[in-house]
Amino acid sequence: MDYLWAFLAGGALCAIGQLLIDLTSMTPARILVTYVVAGVFLGAVGVYEPYAEFAGAGATVPLTGFGYQLAKGVREAVTADGLIGALTGGLEACAGGITAAVVFALIVALLFTRGDKTAKITGQS
């Protein structure tokens, strides 16, 4: 059952993103920024938490989930450490994902040849 909810909730968030791409002149970068900031906002006002409870990965894997993690991290840090938590909590909560992206990007840059959309078969290492 949790797979079904993850599929539907995650799919819906992606479908909304697609509508924004197709029907507005928003660039993908703007859409991602909107998603993250929306995630922070929804996390802050306490809406995202219950949504994530039932949608599981359908709520945490999309970038709104990234925003929600930031908000959650800040909330916990501010409660524990005071004002300094506003600066430390967000990055702490998302450190894993961001550092992983950087580290894997470096590994890929080291090991792979750059891509080529015009080639038949691409990207052998």
Binding site: R114, G115, D116, K117
Partner: peptide, 14 residues
């Protein structure tokens, strides 16, 4: 060249 133009005007190939 598609690839040199893409990286200058648009996005990385991958």
């Amino acid at each position: 060249h598609f690839c040199s133009a893409e990286r200058q005007f648009r996005f990385p190939e991958t």
